[in-house]
């Protein structure tokens, strides 16, 4: 993966405004490169805010719902590594209860189970 892209993703993850999340979602999670998508998802998880966690949990084909197992597993591992899991559990509960897509609900349920076991 391009080193400049890595540095750009790191710089965007350091920003706290929602505009940085929008850029990460548009350019990172939609990238055809698996490594870029993986690195972007982990960066969004590390932000640990509602808007960033929502991107990797409730969107089909992004984060834990990515078609690439490596991207999905890396995102799950980053969620499990969070110290403050309050926001992520809240979003997982809302996804399990209210999301329209059953596969997204199933993935959210699996991640919540892992969180309860960790």
């Amino acid at each position: 993966m391009n080193r400049n892209v890595l540095e750009i993703i790191d710089a965007l993850s350091a920003h706290e405004d929602n505009e940085s999340i929008r850029v990460l979602e548009e350019l990172g999670t939609n990238s055809p490169d698996n490594e870029v998508r993986e690195y972007t998802s982990r960066a969004l998880v590390r932000k640990n805010v509602h808007d960033s966690l929502k991107v990797v949990i409730i969107n089909q084909g992004k984060g834990i719902n990515d078609l690439s197992p490596s991207v999905a597993m890396s995102t799950i591992n980053e969620i499990l590594a969070l110290k403050d899991k309050e926001e992520v559990i809240k979003i997982l509960d809302d996804t399990i209860s209210m999301h329209s897509d059953e596969s997204v609900k199933e993935n959210a349920r699996s991640v919540k189970s892992l969180l309860s076991l960790s």
Partner: peptide, 15 residues
């Protein structure tokens, strides 16, 4: 490249 750049600048660089 660092977080000192604005989001728009980082976005342009990424593009």
């Amino acid at each position: 490249i660092s977080s000192d750049l604005t989001v728009n600048e980082l976005e342009e660089l990424w593009k």
